[in-house]
Design a protein around this nucleic acid. Structure first.
Length: 816
DNA sequence: GGGGTTAAGATTTTT
DNA sequence: TCTTAACCCC
């Protein structure tokens, strides 16, 4: 069957009717011309299909080399996604495979979504057949649901999030009598994560490593944990991969089916794969080498969560006969930016080596700027002013980003921007589905759907408060463990006895009856209605309505948003499956605002203008990274710097300050060693015009933090004699000017809503005196309720009930 | 069960 | 310095 666009189609679940049983045992291989053969040369002489339009020769090579292993080393901004999607289009158009025969893996849902959209552009909307385009995890779930029994699960298994995981570990540690202070659940979780990232089952954990926890009981705890999961019929994120690997290893017939199915495999962001993902891929690629991995070793920044740069470095070794294609032609940044980033990254050892270049050079292009200030406040203020100036020149705020190393740096900017009335948005941060109220609501839904979901039940059994305290729960737990039954069932049995005090018994009975009632409505009510009913009848919404804290209104909004987001799903089960895997939410932000985010979350994005504050030793490179992983850590930090610089299309400005407050303590800081690794000819030191105080000089470098611990001390100390550094110092010490120049009232900025977390809305700053009066009770989105102590113009000093005394602009509060 | 006090910990984050 | 979670007492 073919669709109107001539592309082969297949059904949408990825499991064709003929799969696995009726899979043709000897499929007719589509002919593919050998590279360099007569047909190939004849074809190359001809104009390619439309989708080749605009590809450069390397990109085209990457698209056309369909057979055998291919590694595409795609530098930043070299059209990586384009190559991937065009390659898929090419596979489909040449008839080399059906959509359902292409395995294409990404790391994030966002990447998967974008890829689907772009492919839809090529093949006319019909991407439903691309059933195997998704994240590692979502693909694994799909496989596992089919073969759950083979790894000791039932098909309806639930997927635990990190919160559930921690609570479970905690219970186990308690039950095993392990001191939670000495051996924290968190520590165990990350240890176990490490094992799962390397595809180690409990039996495979080496004695040495197992010994690193609770006096040698690491493996034992891991085993108990896995046991518990299988009793709960649940899997954590790491398990999703691990179970599939186990499945493949123990069931060659199952593996063979998938090997036959996937004619072409594509992996995006290959530098981010961990050992488990690598093994997973190797298993699938055993009999079929048509693997195309795309990645950039220079952008590997997730080593700390198990990514192995080695995977990409060893590709040619692991996949013999691999074609390696380098994409170095950059379409994003100016030559100064590229040269700066390229030069910096050459300081790393153990890279495959690429040098970005651009064909477009404009004498007007600005060099990468290096600016410095006295402290982080000045940094925020100056950057704010520069952004204001850009805005005045018609620069869209949406094309400006501030990329920080650590999220605590964001606060300074938020504070400053709130004061200035500058639109900004924080990207990243706590995700929607991780919020307490959302998790609670989901726990209710999970309980309705899966009465055996103990973790969900525990979560909400006494939320809102029903008088079911520790004592009651302890009895339920004991019975459940004794009888090896789920908590809800134990609770039910307990209600039949006299063991509980009448009050608790009735409360528990009522709750169980409610769940029964909700379950009864599964068939008759839509999942939207039912969710509303549940949240209502359980008293959950009421709980927040009665809550007087600052966050309560937002939480109620989030609950509404949750219900709204369920609309796109057919059923409760479908919705729950989706959100356990897709923890992100793409907010439709339309407003013009500066983006503030961490360097990590900036990967894959680009902006005209990028500010990179906080380039100081200890912060960037981060001390902890150096302490924990030494040289490898330093190199990863350097790659992070590389990622940061290459986000900029036209202008990058790097900042460092002499003083920074860390954990409330002011500390003097010294410029990042990375600054001295930048190429002088592409960088300019900015003379500060608005700095104040002046920096007194005087050897803060040597007495600075941790200088003696650096493994490259010689290079490092030399940094004080480099011309760049001296000029930067000179520029800094010469100034003193008041910085409190009228920030208010001089703004020709257009009015618009301001957001914090994409939600808080404020209006413009003005000198109009506030019409609030002293003593009035007001509400502030971030600080909650408070009363006004004093007023200056539109600045209110408020004594907050839940926060301290703060000064805020009157636009940010409302009467109460 | 709630409210108040104290202690610990404070990179990066997706699934 | 500030936030969060645990803890203790009523």
């Amino acid at each position: 069957m073919a669709d109107p666009n001539g592309y082969p189609t297949s059904n949408t679940d990825g499991f064709d009717d003929d799969f696995p049983g009726d899979w043709p045992s000897a499929p007719v291989e589509p002919y593919s011309a050998p590279a360099g053969g007569i047909a190939a040369r004849a074809m190359a002489a001809r104009r390619g299909p439309d989708y080749f339009e605009g590809l450069n020769p390397e990109q085209r090579h990457a698209v056309e080399t369909l057979e055998g292993p291919v590694l595409v080393l795609a530098g930043a901004g070299t059209g990586k996604t384009r190559v991937l999607t065009t390659r898929i289009a090419h596979i489909l158009a040449t008839g080399a495979a059906q959509p359902s025969q292409i395995l294409s893996v990404t790391f994030t849902n966002k990447a998967a979504r974008e890829m689907k959209q772009r492919i839809a552009g090529f093949i006319g909307g019909n991407v439903e057949g691309m059933a195997w385009l998704g994240t590692f995890h979502s693909i694994c779930v799909k496989i596992l649901r089919r073969h759950a029994e083979l790894v000791g699960l039932k098909s309806g298994f639930s997927i635990l999030d990190t919160d559930d995981q921690l609570r479970l570990i905690k219970q186990i540690l308690q039950a095993e009598g392990i001191d939670e202070k000495r051996w924290t659940p968190k520590a165990f979780a990350s240890l176990m994560d490490g094992w799962k990232n390397r595809a180690l089952t409990p039996a495979q954990v080496s004695a040495g490593e197992a010994g690193a926890f609770a006096g040698g009981r690491g493996r034992e705890i891991y085993e108990i944990y896995q046991d518990r999961l299988s009793i709960l019929n649940a899997a954590d994120f790491g398990d999703l991969l691990l179970h599939v690997i186990t499945l493949f290893k123990n069931n060659p017939d199952v593996l063979a089916e998938y090997q036959r199915r996937f004619r072409y495999m594509l992996v995006d962001e290959y530098q981010d794969t961990n050992v488990a993902q690598y093994l997973w891929l190797r298993l699938l690629a055993q009999s079929n080498p048509n693997v195309c991995c795309v990645g950039d070793d220079d952008q590997s920044i997730y080593g700390w969560r198990g990514a192995e740069v080695d995977n990409i470095l060893r590709f040619e070794h692991d996949f013999p006969g691999a074609t390696v294609i380098r994409l170095e032609r950059n379409y994003r940044s100016t030559s100064h930016i590229l040269a700066t980033a390229s030069h910096l990254i050459t300081h790393n050892e153990g890279r495959l080596g690429k040098t970005l270049f651009t064909d477009f050079e404009d004498p007007e292009d600005q060099k990468v700027a290096i600016a410095s200030g006295w402290d982080s406040q000045e940094e925020a203020r100056s950057i704010g002013e520069e952004i204001e100036a850009l805005q005045a020149n018609g620069h869209a705020l949406n094309d400006i980003a501030i990329l920080v190393r650590a999220s605590f740096q964001m606060r300074e900017f938020e504070d400053r921007f709130v004061t200035m009335g500058m639109n900004y948005r924080v990207i990243g941060g706590p995700r929607f589905y991780e919020r307490m109220e959302i998790r609670d609501a989901l726990a209710y839904l999970r309980c309705v759907l899966q009465p055996s979901d103990d973790l969900a039940f525990e979560r909400i059994v006494n939320t809102p408060k029903r008088g079911l305290g520790d004592a009651t729960l302890k009895l339920v737990h004991e019975l459940a463990r004794l009888e090896r039954i789920p908590l809800m069932q134990a609770a039910f049995q307990l209600c039949q006895t006299e063991e509980l005090r009448p009050k608790a018994r009735n409360a528990l009975k009522d709750l169980l009856a409610q769940f029964e009632g909700w379950r009864g409505q599964l068939e008759t009510k839509s999942h939207l209605e039912l969710t509303e009913i549940i949240l209502d009848e359980s008293g959950y919404t009421e709980m927040w309505r009665n809550d007087r804290s600052a966050e309560a209104p937002g939480r109620l909004d989030n609950l509404k948003e949750l219900i709204r987001s369920m609309e796109e799903f057919e059923s409760l089960a479908g919705f729950l499956e989706h959100i356990s895997l897709v923890m992100d939410r793409d907010s439709a932000e339309t407003m013009d605002a500066v983006s503030i985010m961490t360097l990590h979350s900036a990967k894959g994005l680009e902006f005209d203008t990028v500010f990179l504050p906080g380039w100081e030793e200890g912060l960037f490179p981060h001390q902890r990274s150096l302490d924990e992983t030494g040289r490898a850590g330093l190199e990863e930090e350097r790659r992070l710097a590389y990622v940061g610089i290459t986000r900029a299309r036209k202008k990058a400005t790097i900042w460092f300050t002499s003083n920074r407050r860390i954990h409330g303590q002011w500390q003097s800081s010294i410029p990042s060693r990375f600054l001295d690794e930048l190429p002088a000819e592409h960088v300019e030191i900015v003379e500060q015009s608005s700095s104040y105080g002046g920096y007194g000089g005087g050897g803060y470098g040597r007495s600075g933090m941790a200088a003696s611990r650096f493994d490259r001390q010689d290079t490092f100390q030399n940094s004080y004699s480099t011309p760049g550094w001296q000029r930067a110092q000179k520029a800094r010490s010469s100034q003193s000017e008041s910085f409190e120049r009228g920030r208010f009232g001089d703004s020709a900025r257009k009015d618009g809503p301001r957001t914090i977390d994409g939600e808080l809305v404020a209006k413009s700053v003005s000198e109009t005196p506030s019409d609030y009066s002293v003593g009035e009770r007001v509400f502030h989105m971030k600080f909650g309720y408070g009363s006004i102590i004093s007023i200056e113009g539109n600045k209110l000093t408020i004594d907050f009930e839940k926060a301290s005394v703060k000064k805020v602009l009157d636009n940010f509060v409302e009467r109460h």
